[in-house]
Measured scan of single mutants.
Amino acid sequence: MALNTPQITPTKKITVRAIGEELPRGDYQRCPQCDMLFSLPEINSHQSAYCPRCQAKIRDGRDWSLTRLAAMAFTMLLLMPFAWGEPLLHIWLLGIRIDANVMQGIWQMTKQGDAITGSMVFFCVIGAPLILVTSIAYLWFGNRLGMNLRPVLLMLERLKEWVMLDIYLVGIGVASIKVQDYAHIQAGVGLFSFVALVILTTVTLSHLNVEELWERFYPQRPATRRDEKLRVCLGCHFTGYPDQRGRCPRCHIPLRLRRRHSLQKCWAALLASIVLLLPANLLPISIIYLNGGRQEDTILSGIMSLASSNIAVAGIVFIASILVPFTKVIVMFTLLLSIHFKCQQGLRTRILLLRMVTWIGRWSMLDLFVISLTMSLINRDQILAFTMGPAAFYFGAAVILTILAVEWLDSRLLWDAHESGNARFDD
Results as ranks from 00 to 15, higher is better:
Ala2Gln: 07
Ala2Tyr: 04
Asn4Thr: 07
Pro6His: 07
Gln7Val: 03
Ile8Pro: 09
Thr9Asp: 09
Pro10Thr: 10
Thr11Cys: 07
Lys12Asn: 06
Lys12Gly: 06
Lys12Glu: 06
Lys12Met: 05
Lys13Leu: 09
Lys13Asn: 08
Ile14Pro: 08
Gly20Ser: 06
Glu21Tyr: 06
Glu22Pro: 08
Leu23Glu: 08
Pro24Gln: 07
Arg25Met: 07
Arg25His: 08
Asp27His: 10
Cys31Ile: 00
Cys31Asn: 00
Pro32Trp: 12
Gln33Arg: 11
Gln33Lys: 11
Asp35Lys: 01
Met36Ser: 07
Pro41Cys: 08
Pro41Gln: 08
Glu42Asn: 06
Glu42Asp: 05
Asn44Trp: 05
Asn44Leu: 06
Asn44Ala: 07
His46Thr: 07
His46Ser: 08
Arg53Trp: 06
Cys54Phe: 00
Cys54Met: 00
Cys54Ile: 00
Gln55Phe: 08
Ala56Thr: 08
Ala56Val: 07
Ala56Lys: 10
Ile58Asn: 05
Ile58Gly: 03
Gly61Gln: 13
Ser65Met: 04
Arg68Gly: 03
Ala71Glu: 02
Ala71His: 03
Ala73Leu: 11
Ala73Arg: 01
Thr75Val: 13
Met76Gln: 04
Leu77Gly: 10
Leu78Asn: 05
Leu78Ile: 02
Leu79Ser: 03
Leu79Asn: 05
Pro81Trp: 05
Pro81Ile: 04
Pro81Ala: 05
Phe82Ala: 04
Trp84Thr: 07
Leu88Lys: 02
Leu88Pro: 01
Leu89Gly: 01
Ile91Trp: 01
Ile91Val: 05
Leu94Ser: 01
Gly95Ser: 15
Ile96Cys: 05
Arg97Phe: 03
Ile98Met: 02
Ile98Gly: 02
Ile98Trp: 02
Ala100His: 01
Ala100Cys: 07
Asn101Pro: 05
Met103His: 03
Met103Ala: 04
Gln104Lys: 05
Gln104Ser: 08
Gly105Pro: 07
Trp107Gln: 15
Gln108Glu: 06
Met109Leu: 10
Met109Lys: 08
Gln112Val: 07
Gln112Leu: 07
Gly113Arg: 07
Asp114Gly: 04
Ala115Cys: 05
Ala115Leu: 02
Ile116Trp: 02
Thr117Pro: 11
Ser119Lys: 01
Ser119His: 02
Ser119Ile: 01
Val121Trp: 05
Phe122His: 15
Phe123Pro: 00
Cys124Arg: 00
Ile126Met: 04
Gly127Tyr: 01
Ala128Trp: 01
Ile131Gly: 02
Ile131Glu: 01
Ile131Cys: 11
Leu132Trp: 14
Val133Arg: 00
Val133Gly: 03
Val133Asn: 03
Thr134Gln: 09
Ser135Arg: 00
Ala137Trp: 15
Ala137Gly: 13
Tyr138Gln: 02
Leu139His: 01
Leu139Phe: 02
Leu139Glu: 02
Trp140Tyr: 12
Phe141Gln: 07
Leu145Glu: 02
Leu145Phe: 12
Leu149Arg: 07
Leu149Ser: 12
Leu149His: 04
Arg150Met: 06
Leu154Lys: 01
Met155Arg: 02
Glu157Trp: 15
Arg158Glu: 12
Arg158Pro: 13
Lys160Ile: 08
Lys160Tyr: 09
Trp162Ile: 02
Val163Pro: 03
Val163Leu: 15
Leu165Ala: 13
Leu165Asp: 15
Asp166Pro: 15
Tyr168Lys: 10
Leu169Ile: 11
Val170Ala: 15
Gly171Thr: 11
Ile172Pro: 01
Val174Phe: 06
Ser176Trp: 06
Ser176Arg: 03
Ile177Leu: 14
Gln180Tyr: 02
Gln180Cys: 15
Gln180Trp: 12
Asp181Asn: 02
Tyr182Glu: 10
Ala183Phe: 01
Ile185Glu: 06
Ile185Cys: 03
Gly190Ala: 04
Gly190Tyr: 01
Gly190Leu: 01
Leu191Glu: 07
Leu191Cys: 12
Phe192Val: 10
Ser193Asn: 03
Phe194Arg: 00
Phe194Ala: 08
Val195Thr: 12
Ala196Glu: 06
Leu197Cys: 03
Leu197Asn: 04
Val198Ile: 13
Val198Ala: 15
Ile199Trp: 15
Thr204His: 11
Ser206Gln: 14
His207Met: 14
Asn209Glu: 11
Leu213Cys: 11
Leu213Ala: 13
Trp214Asp: 01
Glu215Tyr: 14
Arg216Gly: 12
Pro219Gly: 15
Pro219Lys: 14
Arg221Asn: 14
Arg225Val: 13
Glu228Asn: 14
Leu230Glu: 13
Arg231Ser: 10
Val232Asn: 14
Val232Ile: 11
Cys233Gln: 00
Leu234Thr: 12
Cys236Thr: 00
Cys236Val: 00
Phe238Arg: 11
Gly240Glu: 10
Tyr241Phe: 13
Pro242Ala: 14
Gln244Arg: 13
Gln244Phe: 11
Arg245Lys: 12
Gly246Tyr: 13
Gly246Pro: 05
Gly246Ile: 10
Arg247Gln: 14
Cys248Ser: 00
Pro249His: 12
Arg250Val: 14
Ile253Val: 11
Ile253Tyr: 08
Leu255Asp: 14
Arg256Val: 13
Arg256Asn: 10
Arg256Glu: 13
Leu257Phe: 14
Arg258Met: 06
Arg258Asp: 07
Arg259Glu: 15
Arg260Leu: 06
Ser262Gln: 05
Leu263Thr: 10
Lys265Leu: 05
Cys266Ala: 11
Trp267Val: 12
Leu270Arg: 01
Leu271Cys: 13
Ala272Val: 03
Ala272Cys: 12
Ser273Lys: 05
Ser273Gly: 11
Leu278His: 11
Asn281Ala: 11
Asn281Ile: 10
Asn281Gln: 12
Asn281Thr: 11
Ile285Gly: 01
Ile288Cys: 01
Gly292Trp: 07
Gln295Glu: 04
Asp297Trp: 02
Thr298Lys: 09
Gly302His: 01
Ile303Gly: 09
Ile303Leu: 15
Met304Cys: 09
Ser305Leu: 09
Ser305Asn: 11
Ala307Ile: 13
Ser308Ala: 13
Asn310Ile: 05
Asn310Gln: 15
Ala312Ile: 14
Ala312Pro: 13
Val313Asp: 01
Ala314His: 04
Ala314Ser: 11
Ala314Phe: 09
Ile316Lys: 01
Ile316Trp: 06
Val317Glu: 01
Val317Met: 01
Phe318Leu: 10
Phe318Glu: 01
Ile319Tyr: 07
Ala320Ser: 12
Ile322Pro: 03
Leu323Glu: 02
Phe326Val: 09
Thr327Trp: 13
Thr327Lys: 13
Lys328Met: 00
Val331Cys: 13
Val331Glu: 03
Met332Thr: 06
Met332Val: 12
Met332Gln: 05
Phe333Leu: 11
Phe333Cys: 11
Thr334Leu: 15
Thr334Cys: 13
Leu337Ala: 12
Leu337Asn: 10
Ser338Glu: 08
Ser338Val: 15
Ile339Pro: 09
Ile339Leu: 10
His340Ala: 11
His340Gln: 07
Lys342Glu: 11
Gln345Met: 14
Gly346Cys: 15
Leu347Asp: 10
Leu347Pro: 04
Thr349Asp: 08
Leu352Ser: 12
Leu353Phe: 14
Leu353Trp: 14
Leu354Ala: 11
Arg355Met: 13
Val357Leu: 10
Val357Asn: 12
Thr358Phe: 11
Trp359Tyr: 11
Trp359Phe: 09
Ser364Ala: 00
Ser364Arg: 00
Met365Arg: 00
Leu366Tyr: 00
Asp367Ser: 00
Asp367Gln: 00
Asp367Glu: 01
Leu368Ser: 06
Val370Asp: 00
Val370Pro: 01
Ser372Tyr: 02
Ser372Pro: 01
Leu373Ala: 04
Leu373Thr: 04
Leu373Gln: 09
Met375His: 03
Leu377Pro: 01
Asn379Met: 02
Arg380Asp: 00
Arg380Pro: 00
Arg380Leu: 02
Asp381Asn: 09
Ile383Asp: 00
Ile383Tyr: 03
Ala385Phe: 01
Phe386Tyr: 01
Thr387Arg: 07
Met388His: 10
Gly389Leu: 00
Gly389Ala: 08
Ala391Met: 01
Ala392Pro: 05
Ala392Asn: 07
Ala397Ser: 13
Leu401Ile: 12
Ala405Cys: 11
Val406Asn: 07
Glu407Trp: 12
Leu409Pro: 03
Asp410Leu: 00
Asp410Gln: 00
Asp410Tyr: 00
Leu413Asp: 05
Leu413Thr: 10
Leu413Cys: 09
Leu414Gln: 05
Leu414Tyr: 07
Trp415Asn: 08
Trp415Tyr: 14
Ala417Cys: 08
Ser420His: 07
Ser420Glu: 08
Phe425Thr: 13
Asp427Glu: 12
